[in-house]
Design a protein around this nucleic acid. Structure first.
Length: 578
DNA sequence: GCCGTTTTCGGCCCGACTGTTTTCAGTCG
């Protein structure tokens, strides 16, 4: 098994950590972290690039030195430099950096003076009162570090929150803040605004009439568990849910620049600040400055204008080419929630859904859709009481009846047919050919080699009347990884066969993810955004699918279910085989 | 260690909060 990018990222970051504890040149440390970010964002495996003899120094933030180290890692699976650094310090001492409020300097002092190498050591030393005796440390810091180390030990590194759960926490908080008389308006920024699939913490930017009162209101919010800091322009709290929230108070004249600054991403901000430097401008959260003079900042648009850039949607701000695209006028026109005309992946009471076809149709009509496809499981999914050929045909008749019994929406017949281990499907092609929408998905036998899984999926979608490949990687966010599969081969095959790739909008799946969906569209494949709803309330998951599509640079033309019913039927026929 | 429409040296994004300080270092985002 060759070295994966994630292993390389871990090694580069570990070197950065070790160098930081050794108090090395900070820009040198930053270089390792930048290189790690570059590798993390690559579509290709570094091991493949090396194999192809590509010049790694063509990649951003990777020069002669680190390129040589990447090749060493690929060749030997290890890096002598890291091993040497690790021997100088103690194994695992970088764990100290994972503790809140312990940075390189603190870790160095704890290690040099007290020989502490892990969080348990911090707790013991704090309880013995040894930390407070160190230069630059005191009682308060000792107490804080003891709590931080215990929290680290109890929860490990803080888990990121899925966006769907974040919405349930963020919306009530924003309602509370916006209802406070001292706050003119409060808006969520950060990865939440960029609609990342998970968020680490939450940044809220607020324009306030009375900053002190606003900060007081914030820390007194009923779901606050503890207050980390409480200032006049910034306060940080931990909510009962464990989510860290920062509130930044700014003046009206700085609202746009603050929102821009705190929306990030960090990498995006660095890229645009470099553009600003070229123009002898300075961008910070208070505005865009030429010398002492503020020349923009009230709106995000005004900030972009000083860089002669059009507005870049928050979902694109990841430094994945959006700054360059904005400069040369090639930013994509992104899909909007209103572009969606129907949902193509919904389960009913016929298998494991909670609602009847009629209830689903009514809920979809209420949303304003033109059509909805009922796609229940096939028999292999025994847990869900999956349908056999006879059941599927019976269900087809039920769907047709539901379609004729109301005239608000078109109900399409469909199935989510299971892709068996050998790439065959567990319903006959005759049955499938009668249905409007056939989604083929892998549910079982996930643990096979990449080559076999790739072959299995490609056979399923090219040899049978399939319209859509469902949740193409099988991942569950924070629960289980994608199965091993060569996505670029699958995308090419799907594009060739006219089979759409699903962007499963369930916020626990989001499968394909943002980067994969971009690669799929680049390969010429159509995208089908479906909620996989098992109850009518889940139809609202569509939003997360659209968010992810936008993060994948997807326009409405690349998405199957933005088409009119006529256009959809035409595309579905065009994609069928035999 | 990386990078270059001032190019092979000399820069490298920027500010708030806290605690231990008496002018600032460390951490965070």
């Amino acid at each position: 098994m060759s070295v994966r990018n994630r292993d390389i990222v871990a090694i580069l970051n570990e070197i950065a950590d070790l160098l930081a504890i050794k108090d090395a040149n900070s820009f040198r440390i930053r270089s390792y972290r930048s290189a790690a970010r570059t590798v993390d964002g690559l579509d290709d495996e570094v091991a493949d690039l090396v194999k192809e003899g590509r010049d790694l120094t063509d990649l951003p933030d990777i020069g002669e030195s680190i390129a040589g180290k990447l090749e060493e890692i690929v060749r030997t699976g290890a890096l002598a430099q890291r091993d040497e650094l690790q021997q100088e310090l103690d194994e695992g001492v970088t764990e100290l950096l994972r503790i809140q409020n312990v940075g390189p300097a603190g870790a160095r002092t704890l290690y040099d003076e007290l020989g502490i190498t892990d969080a348990e050591g911090v707790v013991r030393a704090a309880e013995d009162g040894r930390i407070a005796e160190l230069d630059g440390f005191g009682e308060k810091t000792q107490d804080q570090l003891r709590r931080d180390a215990i929290r680290y030990l109890e929860s490990g590194s803080r888990e990121r929150l899925p966006l769907g759960e974040a919405d349930d926490i963020v919306n009530p908080l924003l309602d509370y803040l916006n209802g406070d008389p001292s706050i003119r308006r409060a808006v969520a920024a950060g990865s939440y605004r960029r609609r990342r699939e998970t968020i680490g913490d939450l940044d809220v930017v607020a324009v306030c009439d009375d900053q002190d009162a606003a900060m007081d209101a914030f820390v007194e919010y009923e779901r606050v568990d503890s207050v980390i800091s409480h200032g006049t322009t910034r306060s940080t709290v931990v909510l009962e849910s464990g989510l860290h929230v920062d509130l930044r108070a700014v003046g009206e004249e700085s609202f746009g620049s603050a929102l821009y600054y705190f929306t990030g991403s960090k990498e995006h901000n660095i890229a645009t600040r470099r553009l600003a430097q070229d123009r002898e401008l300075k961008i910070n959260e208070y505005g865009v400055y030429r010398g002492e003079e503020q020349i923009a900042g009230e709106t995000e648009e005004s900030v972009f204008a000083t860089l002669e850039l059009p507005f870049i949607p928050p979902e694109l701000r990841e430094n994945r080419g959006e700054v360059e695209a904005a400069r040369d006028g090639s930013l994509p026109s992104l899909i909007e929630a209103d572009d969606i005309r129907g949902d193509l992946h919904v389960h009913s009471t016929a298998t494991d859904g909670r609602n009847t076809i009629a209830e689903i149709a009514a809920a979809a009509a209420e949303i304003g859709y033109d059509y909805i496809a009922i796609t229940d499981h096939s028999k292999r999914v025994t847990m869900a009481n999956g349908l056999d050929d006879e059941g599927a045909n019976e269900q087809m008749r039920d769907i047709e009846r539901a379609d004729t019994e109301q005239d608000e929406i078109t109900v399409l017949s469909g199935i989510e047919v299971d892709i068996l281990k050998d790439g065959s499907l567990d319903l006959s092609d005759e049955t499938l050919a009668r249905l409007d929408v056939v989604i083929a998905s892998v549910h079982y036998d996930r643990n096979m080699s990449e080559a076999r899984m790739t072959d299995r999926v490609i056979r399923a979608i090219t040899e049978h009347p399939v319209a859509i490949l469902g949740h193409p990687t099988g991942r569950m966010i924070g629960e289980r990884d994608a199965y091993r599969i060569n996505l670029s081969d699958v995308f090419s095959a799907a594009a060739e066969a006219g089979v759409a790739l699903e962007l499963n909008a369930n916020p626990e799946r989001l499968d394909l993810d943002d980067q994969a969906v971009r690669a799929a569209a680049d390969a010429g494949a159509l995208i089908a955004i479906g909620t996989d709803a098992h109850r009518t309330g889940n139809l609202s998951f569509m939003r997360y699918g659209v968010d992810t599509a936008r993060r994948g640079w997807i326009g409405s033309r690349s998405v199957l279910n933005t088409r009119s019913l006529t256009g959809l039927r035409k595309a579905l026929r065009g994609g069928e085989h035999g």
